[in-house]
């Protein structure tokens, strides 16, 4: 069973063995509005914990997407770069951003469970 965890920057992390799939939460897409541009990293890129890894832009503004864990990018979702509206349509499914080979599993422990994330959203309204 894979478990989904959440960061304070509104990213989600789903672990599948040694790799993690990362994207932005539905809540993040609602704050951003219509997404019209996405830049995903190249495979092979090394990312630090909470390092800037991708870019997402709405009609209003550009925002960075951070990787909640460190590791190496093994795959990126090119389809969202071609059709950024996919991120709004299915942020926690088809709208995933990149996959990472996990460097340090213990980094996952500091992320929030879905219950904790729900609470975090309520306590930190945008």
């Amino acid at each position: 069973m894979s478990e989904v965890k959440f960061s304070k920057n509104h990213e989600w992390v789903k672990t599948e063995g040694d790799t993690a799939v990362i994207g932005i939460t539905k809540h993040a897409t609602e704050m951003l509005g219509d997404i019209v541009f996405v830049e995903v990293p190249e495979s092979g890129k090394t990312v630090e914990i909470n390092g800037q890894t991708a870019v997402v832009e709405s009609t209003k503004a550009a925002s960075d997407v951070y990787s909640p864990i460190s590791g190496e990018v093994v795959e990126s979702n090119k389809s969202i770069a071609d059709d950024p509206s996919k991120v709004n349509a299915d942020p926690e499914g088809e709208g995933w951003f990149f996959k990472i080979k996990i460097k340090n599993k213990s980094e996952l422990d500091s992320l929030m469970s879905s219950t904790e994330y729900e609470k975090f959203k309520k306590e930190n309204p945008s």
Binding site: G33, D34, V36, S58, T59, K60
Partner: peptide
């Protein structure tokens, strides 16, 4: 108001 429920693209 910067936008309503439908969002900027649909409003446009």
């Amino acid at each position: 108001p910067i936008q309503y429920k439908d969002g900027i693209v649909k409003e446009h």
